[in-house]
């Protein structure tokens, strides 16, 4: 199942946040969206998952979701969005409860995703007992549980410290290598973008327009922290973003 944005523009009141964005999200690939703050990248992600309507243009789903897919468009949020009153298992169970699955089937899915995210030993812990990285792994497990066609990730690693971020990036790469998934990954961190993106979309500052689409052919599993090719790509991306970021930074909010 592919996703397609077709000349999407968006306004908040009189302020235009997105201008004429056309973009393909092919299945089996991770598309990273980078851009300076306030360029509308999170808005774009909310539109892709149907949490917001574009003012102009259309968001299209090409083809049907694959068999066994409980929630085709599934988010991973920056601040985890775990229910603090439910255990790890309970948080994963939450998203399975409305789908008419049998108890045994639910248990099997939960056991599988917890094992894939290395959380089996923490199934009965409450979110308050977990570190930030663990919380995000629970959120990833929850997303995997509904077997999504596209994962929509809104700065999933931004609330974490840099060591945890590296570890979780490795986890994401391992998950993708085992079973390639489609993802749209919004970030302001260029290192994450070159590590995880098959396609990196650079947006300009507000109103967000497509500046450039960079394709990276190197397989995810071969990408390493500090790889010269990736470094060069990151420099190139930073060159594109630098002036935009500076200008965006100098703007008054709602100015």
């Amino acid at each position: 199942m592919d996703l397609k944005l077709s000349s999407v523009s968006h306004y908040y009141g009189d302020t235009q946040v997105l201008r004429d964005i056309t973009l393909d999200i092919p299945s089996g690939q991770i598309v990273c969206i980078v851009g300076p703050s306030g360029c509308g990248k999170s808005t774009l992600l909310r539109m892709l998952g149907g949490l917001e309507r574009p003012s102009e243009g259309r968001v299209l789903q090409m083809g049907d979701a694959p068999e066994g897919c409980l929630n085709p468009l599934t988010y991973i949020f920056q601040d985890f969005a775990l229910l603090p009153w439910r255990t790890v298992r309970g948080n994963v169970a939450l998203v399975l409860e409305d789908h008419g699955l049998g108890k045994a089937q639910r248990e099997a899915i939960i056991a599988d995703v917890l094992a894939r995210t290395k959380l089996t030993d923490f199934a009965d812990a409450l979110p308050k007992q977990l570190s930030g990285g663990m919380k995000q792994r629970v959120a990833i497990a929850r997303a995997l549980a509904v077997n999504p066609a596209v994962m929509l990730m809104d700065e999933p690693l931004s609330a974490l410290d840099s060591q945890t971020r590296e570890l979780l990036m490795d986890d994401l790469v391992a998950l993708w290598t085992r079973q390639p998934f489609t993802a749209v990954y919004v970030t302001h961190n260029l290192a994450e973008a070159v590590r995880l993106g098959h396609k990196i979309v650079v947006l300009s500052r507000r109103p967000g327009e497509l500046r450039e689409v960079v394709e990276l052919d190197m397989p995810l599993a071969e990408r390493r922290h500090g790889d010269p090719v990736l470094e060069a790509q990151q420099q190139h991306l930073w060159g594109l973003m630098r002036d935009e970021a500076a200008a965006a930074d100098a703007e008054l909010i709602d100015g």
Binding site: G49, N71, F77, A81, L83, L94
Partner: peptide, 23 residues
């Protein structure tokens, strides 16, 4: 954010109220 999360996972209205809003 928790309510948006519930919606994004396709939870029903009643589920969102009883499992997210009330707790």
């Amino acid at each position: 954010v928790l309510i948006r999360m519930g919606q994004s996972f396709g939870l029903g209205w009643w589920s969102i109220v009883s499992k997210i809003v009330v707790p």
